[in-house]
Design a protein around this nucleic acid. Structure first.
Lengths: 168, 168
DNA sequence: CTGAATTTTCAAAACTTATTGAAAAATTCT
DNA sequence: AGAATTTTTCAATAAGTTTTGAAAATTCAG
């Protein structure tokens, strides 16, 4: 397979993959493009490569920067801004976990806390089923929360090394 | 807080949460409703509880069954079908992992294999960046794949117990 | 087998989200 | 400072997704 074709396929698939995980297709594609580009790209480069509008590139790039997956790069002597993506997939993954935890898991746990104490007879099976379910999700979420905290602070080598032993 | 109000809040939040993870809001809400219901519900019950149409309930229930998160229940003497959800959140989580792995991770790994061998000079930095990135993602994905396999087959108590030690 | 109850399907409509592109703002050069 | 270039914004529009609801299919009791 030719490089250009392989690139296109990867970008398309990464985009489709993203949509299954609640990520805007174009944002995932911009990310994919930057991950496989040896050099930083300008917004014009991306418009070109993905056949999308200037506004679209701009919005998605800014969101990727907000997720800390992409950085602005200044190239001396160039007027335009350029962008690169973090290419170490371990760092990419931990960063995504970090953000989603902050944006989604933490608020969910806060809500579950509030829902925990409903008025009413603890003997009523409807009350009981509700509090049991909420309690179960809360405990699970807290466990996940702790685990992800450690994971995200860990070094890849330590982690993979330890996992090998753990999951023999 | 009153039970009815707490239920509504949970259903709404679970729905919103789902949309951030590529899951149809209504499907997540139906799932939430069944998880906090002490008894099995009919399609009419769900239409009522969520103010949605019959077709909508039907489609989403069938998808939840397809994900093996919900089961049909026959109540003797009743003409209607009833439905219950798995309420053990550990089982829910491992089942979701199982399905997403099958539907998304496995195909992605298969694609990365194909993209691995592009024609061209390995010294060309463009070729190199591409194969390095793809290779990195592939290795990471394979590691995750193995890990999730073990996780999904594990028993919750074993898992949590071991993790506590692991993540001290 | 008949007819009532229930479930399923799916085209059309409603809703949601993403994209465009031109205008405004900001930046940088001379 | 003024002009040229680049970036950002955002209202309008397009594209994509979900929902409805009525018709068709299926199931079941008598």
């Amino acid at each position: 397979m030719k490089l250009a074709e392989a690139k296109q396929q990867f970008i398309a698939s990464w985009g489709a993959f993203g949509t299954h995980w609640g990520i805007n297709r174009t944002m995932a594609q911009v990310h994919a493009l930057l991950m496989i580009s040896a050099d930083p790209l300008s917004q014009d480069d991306m418009m070109q490569a993905l056949s999308i509008s200037r506004g679209n590139v701009n919005m998605n790039i800014r969101e990727l920067i907000d997720w800390r997956l992409v950085d602005r790069v200044i190239i001396p002597g160039e007027r335009k801004e350029y962008f690169t993506a973090e290419k170490d997939i371990w760092k990419v993954a931990t960063q995504i976990i970090r953000e989603r935890k902050k944006r989604e898991l933490d608020p969910m746990l806060k809500l579950l806390d509030q829902l925990q104490d409903v008025e009413g007879d603890k003997k009523d099976k409807n009350v009981k089923q509700f509090t049991d379910t909420i309690g179960g999700i809360k405990r699970f979420g807290q466990q996940a929360d702790k685990m992800l905290d450690v994971l995200v602070k860990a070094d890849e080598n330590w982690f993979v090394g330890s996992l090998v032993k753990f999951f023999k």
